[in-house]
């Protein structure tokens, strides 16, 4: 499969344009529904800064249109903000973070993220601090609500992601929507998504059951390999899930990209993201 075939597939919408990167698996939090069982004690499974930049460069040459960076908590990596800024010179980047490592004296770490092609996506699950913190950890609500306006004022584009076990359009989310709006985040930058029953969520019987055809087929790169979708490289009972593994080879990116496209072309008609997972 040639590189132009991949580019044509992306341009036509046959293959999604975003590449997700799991920069690392460890996290300062241990959320109840975490797909990767991340915690401070998790195996790190880090990519290097050089690998991440190479992925961005090769992704652009293959015709991809954007990069997403997730973890774990990416901001645990000291070099992450500068690397994301370097990646954004090639493709727009969405950085997923819990936002709790940008408070107080550490706020200056966010400076490289004030970039027209970078969006920082921070999780906030409830307008009620106790409910939010039950899933995400002590003081999480206060830290997020404090840092989001500071980021916006400093020129960082902020998106909020809400992960819910309930209906995505539930009126019970209205107070949260209002809170997010009051923090300075536009409605179109507030993402509401279901808990996906993988990783820790599966062990706790949380969320929606998802198979490949439910999961957006965005190419996803982690230290363990390349996967079908950002919900692919999950961890359950300490062991990596391999059901959505495409290749162990991550670079050159054309190898997993070709495999993803070939796999997509082998799927039955009607494959879509009907569960609203994103």
């Amino acid at each position: 499969m040639t590189e132009s075939t991949i580019a044509e597939a992306i341009a036509s919408g046959e293959m999604p344009g975003r590449v997700w990167i799991y920069s690392n698996y460890h996290c300062n939090l241990a959320c109840s529904y975490c797909l990767t069982e991340s915690s401070p004690r998790s195996e790190r499974r880090e990519l290097t800064a050089e690998q991440m930049l190479t992925i961005a460069i090769e992704a652009k040459s293959l015709g991809f249109t954007g990069i997403g960076v997730t973890g774990g908590e990416p901001m645990l990596l000291p070099w992450l903000p500068e690397t994301v800024a370097a990646m954004a010179a090639h493709l727009p980047v969405i950085l997923l973070t819990n936002g709790t490592l940008l408070g107080g004296d550490r706020f200056e770490r966010a400076a490289p993220l004030a970039h027209p092609d970078i969006a920082v996506q921070i999780s906030l699950d409830s307008h009620q601090p106790d409910l939010n913190d039950m899933a995400r950890g002590p003081d999480n609500f206060d830290k997020v609500v404090a840092v989001v306006p500071r980021l916006i004022v400093s020129g960082v584009r902020v998106r909020i992601a809400t992960t819910t076990a309930g209906p995505l359009d539930s009126p019970t989310l209205d107070p949260l929507r209002a809170l997010v709006r009051s923090l300075g985040v536009r409605d179109e930058d507030h993402i509401v998504r279901p808990i996906v029953r993988r990783g820790r969520a599966d062990e706790r019987d949380l969320g929606v059951v998802a198979v490949a055809r439910n999961i957006p087929s965005e190419l996803t790169i982690a230290a363990d390999g390349a996967f079908w979708g950002s919900f692919g490289p999950t961890v359950r009972a300490g062991r990596l899930d391999t059901d959505l593994l495409l290749t162990r080879t991550i670079l050159p990116l054309s190898i997993p990209a070709s495999t993803l496209l070939a796999t997509l072309r082998g799927l039955p008609e009607g494959a879509d993201a009907s569960l609203g997972i994103r």
């Binding site: 490949a212 079908w228 062991r239 899930d241 391999t242 059901d243 959505l244 593994l245 495409l246 290749t247 495999t259 070939a262 796999t263």
Partner: peptide, 13 residues
């Protein structure tokens, strides 16, 4: 090494 079963078989396998 881990011997994968049908549930853990990679999508291409």
């Amino acid at each position: 090494t881990q011997l994968l079963d049908a549930d853990q078989a990679p999508i291409t396998a």
